[in-house]
């Protein structure tokens, strides 16, 4: 009776996997596929018919939409600097916090704190710090760093974003690095010390290669989170002044929901997807290769 058995199996499949699959297909897979279709139309989101325009949207993005290309360049620079700083700081904190300090737990909670808050909240908090707190600190200390026109021009806007983002994510990377460092076998470190390896040598030759899987994870996380930054951008600078700090996601959002050009917005979303996938894939392949060599 193969029929009955198969029917029972299919019934259990439907009961257990069916609901999740249904929600996933309707709310993730279909939108993803529709996005490719809409990117080839001039759909405005309101009228029912989406007129087919072929690759016109894509041609337009690369030849006429300077603002889109600038938002990409902004996001790319933001990603590179944030990735570098947040990983250095997160790893530095992790190294310090695995040295049996008295206040380890309090410190870990302090550094992790910004990470649990909404990006939107952090942006507003720092708007206050940059606009009110920094001038006051400038008057007290006389340091010119505090007296810059924070968020007032393209460059302080960029660095403002970097500061807040690094402040938010360093603690997150730190806890991942801490758990990796705690798994490094202390007998290996002891052996290295007896063999005369100094602090720096044991760091670069032993610790870093041993925790390479966590480095892959942290680079991946900081890369993909920074590339998709939206809430923080909206609340801190709102893309200004003059769109100079506009991230790609904000550009896509504005194109679709402010200008009501859903077709063009979808084309931007497609390019965004391709670029994010390509960069993360490249990063994971490159760092994974170093894991294998160990």
């Amino acid at each position: 009776m193969p029929g009955r058995n198969t029917r029972i199996k299919l019934f259990h499949d439907a009961v257990f996997i069916g609901p999740a699959l249904l929600f996933f297909i309707t709310l993730t897979l279909l939108p993803f596929l529709f996005g490719f279709y809409y990117s080839l139309t001039s759909w405005n989101g309101v009228s029912g018919n989406a007129e087919w325009v072929g690759l016109d949207n894509f041609v337009r993005l690369f030849t006429q939409d300077d603002r889109f290309l600038r938002s990409f360049w902004f996001t790319f620079r933001f990603m590179m600097i944030s990735l570098l700083l947040s990983n250095l700081i997160g790893f530095g904190f992790a190294l310090a916090l695995t040295r049996h300090l008295k206040l380890t737990n309090v410190l870990r909670v302090s550094f992790f704190m910004p990470n649990i808050l909404a990006g939107l909240l952090l942006g507003f908090i720092w708007q206050f710090i940059f606009l009110r707190g920094f001038p006051s600190l400038g008057n007290m200390t006389g340091w010119s760093f505090f007296k810059l026109s924070w968020l007032g021009d393209a460059s302080t806007g960029f660095w403002g974003m970097v500061i807040v983002f690094v402040w938010q994510i360093s603690g997150y990377l730190m806890v991942i690095y801490i758990s990796a460092l705690q798994n490094v076998d202390s007998s290996i470190m002891e052996a290295a010390r007896i063999d005369g390896a100094g602090g720096f040598r044991s760091l670069t030759r032993i610790i870093l290669p041993l925790i390479m899987p966590s480095i892959t994870v942290c680079l991946f996380l900081s890369l993909s989170i920074s590339f998709k930054v939206f809430d923080l951008n909206l609340s801190l600078t709102n893309g200004g002044p003059f769109h100079s700090t506009e991230s790609v996601t904000m550009n896509i959002y504005n194109e679709a929901f402010q200008n009501n050009r859903y077709g063009l917005g979808s084309a931007k979303a497609v390019i965004f997807f391709l670029v994010v996938s390509a960069i993360t894939l490249l990063q994971v392949t490159l760092t994974k290769r170093r894991e294998v060599q160990m």
């Binding site: 996933f24 993730t28 897979l29 279909l30 939108p31 993803f32 529709f34 996005g35 809409y38 989101g45 993909s224 590339f227 998709k228 939206f230 996601t249 896509i252 959002y253 679709a256 859903y262 917005g265 979808s266 979303a269 497609v270 965004f272 997807f273 994010v276 996938s277 993360t280």
Partner: peptide
């Protein structure tokens, strides 16, 4: 599907 950014599917 975990690699798909939310912003890439939000319009549809």
């Amino acid at each position: 599907s975990m690699v798909i950014p939310f912003q890439s599917i939000m319009i549809p």
